[in-house]
Write a protein that binds this DNA or RNA. Structure first.
Lengths: 246, 246
DNA sequence: CTACGGTGTGTGGTCCTACCACACAAGCTA
DNA sequence: TAGCTTGTGTGGTAGGACCACACACCGTAG
């Protein structure tokens, strides 16, 4: 077993034993090095991994923001992992889109009408109406809107996945919108669809909401010229040399 | 931006530009340190992160297994991340089970009847019949069987998620089986259900397969005493002090 | 000429030490 | 009393040293 893994192994033990929980502060790097009988460099490698996985957050100085604190941010791990794997073309964009479709229709069908996340979603739609700052700003809010829907379904894991999935193909989506013939018309249509989806969720018509989401997403990709269904989108779109970096 | 992130940033650029791909070998740590203008310690921290995310694999010595090589193993990232987040109780077991149900029914519905993964699945079922090495061996093969189904659906991402989801709650499942009144009877039933699922997939009846998978999974949790549906399983089951470590 | 064995070289793995920037807290000073 | 200085502990980074490993090369013995 590699030395730096002693840190995550130790943390897992402490968590299981209930001696540590989210919000707890880990011992200082020097202290932990001595405690685990390894060098500080190894401790640091271990904490870097935990940080990348979204398990801890490290901060310098002193005070509440300082030290290494246990957080709970699964999205962080998914985020960076998906980005890199999509970039390496090991993860086809097609698979990501397909998965997104699956998770998102599920979320729409299971979203609780009285979830506070829906209020946030409504605010986002208002913002999208007020500000007309082009595709980029729109996509940003669009992404947040969809994530809010996922959260309304009350599943932390699916919410996190949703957000990361969006992030990992954000650049791809951006390129798609750039090729659109009439952004104004598309944006109008997307906004109308958003309203309809939200309304369906709020009135408890989950099945309808799921169907609306499906056609919303598939419609976008179809209009952007990625063939009829998601499963026909290019597998290697992100690997071609010269493409903007993901 | 933290220094060690220079490594993943650089890698992402190289991947996007097509100068690196899966299977490529990264420069040595010392060379990369000089090239990026950072210390070797920082390079190592960055590499550790990439390794944890399943993007690269590091090996000592020389030869084909040596050096830092770009791999493509999204499951690795999901695996460790989910384990720790479940351990920290930030990720309720309930959410994991729910997600598993979603992904798995989808996979069963979309599995291609002529996928080579199904042959592997069949072999696993044979093994489960031949060897009767108690719940542990059974669960191991059971897990592989379900992952094989996911792979037959042809979505790398969902396959990886499936596997990691199983892994993250493996210890939990193990405890459930331990509390079962009659393992022999349960195991017989599960095996019959497996056969039925595989048969449905092989004959192209995706909808049937999905329904069988759903009742297969829900039935198991019900029998194990976790209320009627997955969404009622305990949220904190893995955090209780004294429980076996996850 | 062939087969064996030592050695060279480059790899990641680990450790140690030193120094830096930061942020708060305590204490001193005007 | 208000403000500044200093102290202390934190993570962040750098550089150097040594180790174990695994292959490739080359000299030597047969």
């Amino acid at each position: 077993m590699r030395t730096h893994q002693a840190v995550s192994a130790w943390l897992e033990q402490e968590l299981a034993a209930g001696r540590l929980a989210i919000g707890s502060r880990l011992p200082g790097e020097r202290a932990m090095a001595e405690q685990l009988g390894i060098s500080r460099a190894s401790v640091r490698e271990g904490t870097r991994v935990l940080e990348a996985l979204g398990v801890v957050r490290a901060g310098v100085g002193s005070g509440p923001q300082a030290g290494t604190v246990i957080t709970g941010n699964p999205a962080l791990a998914l985020d960076s992992a998906l980005r890199l794997h999509v970039a390496s073309a090991h993860l086809p964009v097609r698979d990501v889109v397909e998965t997104r479709l699956l998770l998102e229709t599920w979320a729409a069908a299971h979203a609780s009408p009285d979830s506070p996340a829906l209020a946030r979603a409504a605010l986002l739609l208002d913002e999208m109406d007020r500000h007309d700052d082009g595709p980029d700003g729109f996509l940003e809010r669009d992404s947040l809107f969809h994530v809010a829907l996922a959260e309304a379904a009350g599943n932390v894991l699916i919410g996190a996945m949703m957000g990361s999935l969006r992030g990992s193909i954000a650049a791809y989506t951006q390129r798609l919108t750039a090729g659109l013939p009439d952004w104004g018309a598309t944006s109008d249509r997307l906004r109308r669809e958003h309203r309809a989806i939200l309304e369906a969720v709020l009135s408890g018509r989950g099945g309808t909401a799921a169907e609306l989401v499906r056609s919303h997403i598939e419609g976008f990709y179809r209009e952007a010229g990625v063939a009829q269904d998601a499963s026909a989108s290019p597998r290697q779109a992100t690997l071609s040399p010269g493409m903007p970096e993901i």
